[in-house]
Design a protein around this nucleic acid. Structure first.
Length: 486
RNA sequence: GAGCCAUUAGCUCAGCAGGUAGAGCACCGGACUUUUAAUCCGGGUGUCCGGGGUUCGAAUCCCCGAUGGCUCACCA
């Protein structure tokens, strides 16, 4: 290894000097009595106590025979105070330290003249020598490319990034806590599937050697979870990674975290209530307040959320009543009049859905349920009894983003087969996102699946809103990036 | 996939009527025993993203490419 520049070379020289003096620069086990947060949290009580703590050296302020430093651990920072008359010969070793080094220190808690709770160090041990310089201390690391590729640097120097991932973990825990308390069973189903289904998306393809089998990474766990309903597991959920071979944007990462849950003998109205209750629980547990500010806009997440059907929503925002325009040709004309571009061969439902997405979604800033999606865009949802062109399906929107998608699950195997056939036909016409025929799933349905409500929630997008993250890459520790060409 | 923008020191950035590169932090040397973006004195450490071109001369202008960001497309 050759030092790349002067800054790294200086650290290498210090490393060699440490070896010369018989000091192991890579330490070992170190017994901590406290974290920085423990000390700040119990300050007056700990005054004068001897403590040991460990962390990364983030700042050094030399004053000749005394030196101040900032030590950062997993929970925060604390100031260290080194004096030559306390440390004797060890004081000289400070010259061999650099920002970024990891230290273990033992010392007494005190408060400085300026009021800063600090540790008067009695001894310290080098636990790891850092050979590369940290990003700048004041501005942090701003370059998004480096922040995503070298997330560890982002986590070291940008506290808001670290907090966001801690919050993400708390949100996931709250979700599990909530569902467990409701009697849902957490399950795990295959990520590698013979037929990818449960969503409209292009899959990643992989290959199993021993089976000589092409497999797909799952685009959704849906069809396996429904098999579990057939098997008598009446309330199940899975929170896991799904993979979609599509474009990358601030709202899309090729792998992302999806929560899906199914409840036998329930329907989509139960799912609405469950979602409201779950989000309410999460914000109470994690944020402690019912509102969030997302990118400058205040959003009130407190239930209940307004509900309107897709047809009502379109009427509200465009004036057009597609409930009365049921002929596909007329619907296309109406859509065109509204300035919405539509495909020649689209059915009524697809036209309506397109009008909704283009003209209504941008208005859905505050939490809103949109009900009764067209059957044409809902191949796995139960038809509405009163209107077979529509389904018992809703999506929940927050900040103009789809947060949840739920329906009364289709449990009629004959209708499901017809829907798959329509999907296969669309696939033949070149729609690569359409479903494939899944005989194995149909066989399960033919054994009988209880009526059920099911729901899918994009966890990353929920975390984005709850943590005010502008990009999905800000809530995924290692987002998918093109490899760097060095 | 398309358009726009960006890429300069380890980091954050300035420099662009074309004249051969700067600041702050970091770093190196020195002073300093309660500082905290410590301070003071001295030091600029560089493949100006890469490759071509125009020009006496390119960080700056042109072309191609790389990577990223945003917008759009895609994502029911």
């Amino acid at each position: 290894m050759e030092p790349e520049n002067e800054l790294i070379a200086a650290r290498w020289q210090k490393l060699q000097e440490l070896y010369r003096r018989g000091i192991d620069p890579y330490g070992g086990r170190f017994e901590r009595t406290h974290t920085t947060a423990d000390i700040h949290g119990n300050y007056p009580a700990l005054e004068g106590e001897r403590v040991s703590l460990a962390g990364r050296l983030m700042a050094l302020r030399e004053h000749g025979k005394a030196t101040f430093a900032d030590l950062q651990d997993g929970e925060g920072k604390i100031q260290l105070y080194f004096r030559v008359d306390k440390l004797g010969e060890q004081y000289e070793l400070l010259k061999l330290l650099d920002l970024g080094d990891i230290l273990g220190v033992v010392g007494k808690v005190f408060r400085t003249r300026r009021g800063e709770v600090s540790i008067e160090v009695e001894s310290f041990v080098l636990l790891c020598k850092s050979l590369r310089p940290l990003p700048e201390k004041w501005h942090g690391l701003k370059d998004t490319d480096l922040r995503y590729r070298q997330r560890y640097l982002d986590l070291i120097v940008n506290p808001e990034s670290r907090l966001r991932f801690i919050l993400r973990a708390k949100i996931l825990r709250a979700v599990r806590q909530f569902l467990d308390s409701k009697g849902f069973l957490e399950v795990e189903t295959p990520s590698m599937q013979v037929i990818p289904g449960g969503a409209a998306a292009r899959p990643f393809v992989t290959y199993h050697n021993a089976l000589d089998l092409q497999l797909y990474l799952r685009i959704a766990p849906e069809l396996h979870l429904k098999r579990l309903l057939v098997g008598g597991l009446e309330k199940v959920y899975e929170m896991g990674r799904v993979f979609r071979n599509e474009g990358i944007s601030t709202k899309h990462n090729p792998e992302f975290t999806m929560l899906e849950l199914y409840q036998a003998y329930a329907d989509y109205t139960d799912m609405m209530a469950l979602l409201e209750e779950m989000v309410d629980f999460i914000i109470r547990e994690v944020l402690g307040r019912p509102t969030v500010v997302y990118q400058g806009t205040e959003i009130n997440l407190a239930p209940p959320w307004p509900r309107l059907t897709m047809l009502e929503a379109i009427k509200k925002y465009t004036g057009a009543d597609f409930g009365l325009i049921r002929d596909p040709q007329e619907a296309k004309r109406a859509a065109a009049d509204l300035g919405v571009e539509i495909g020649e061969d689209w059915e009524w439902g697809k036209v309506v859905n397109e009008v909704f997405e283009v003209l209504v979604e941008p208005h859905l800033v505050q939490p809103t349920f949109i009900l009764d999606y067209p059957v044409a865009v809902s191949p796995l949802a139960k038809r509405k009894k009163e209107d077979p062109e529509l389904t018992y399906r809703f999506e929940a929107f927050i900040a103009c983003r789809e947060i949840a998608n739920a329906f009364s699950e289709l449990n009629d195997p004959v209708d499901q087969r017809r829907r798959f056939e329509a999907q296969v036909a669309a696939r033949t016409r070149g729609n690569e996102e359409a479903h494939m025929m899944d005989e194995d799933f149909l066989r399960a349905l033919e054994h009988g699946m209880p009526p059920a409500g099911g729901m899918g929630i994009g966890i990353d997008r929920l975390v984005m809103i709850l943590t005010d993250a502008p990009s999905i890459r800000d809530v995924i520790l290692f987002p998918t990036m093109r490899p760097r060409g060095d």
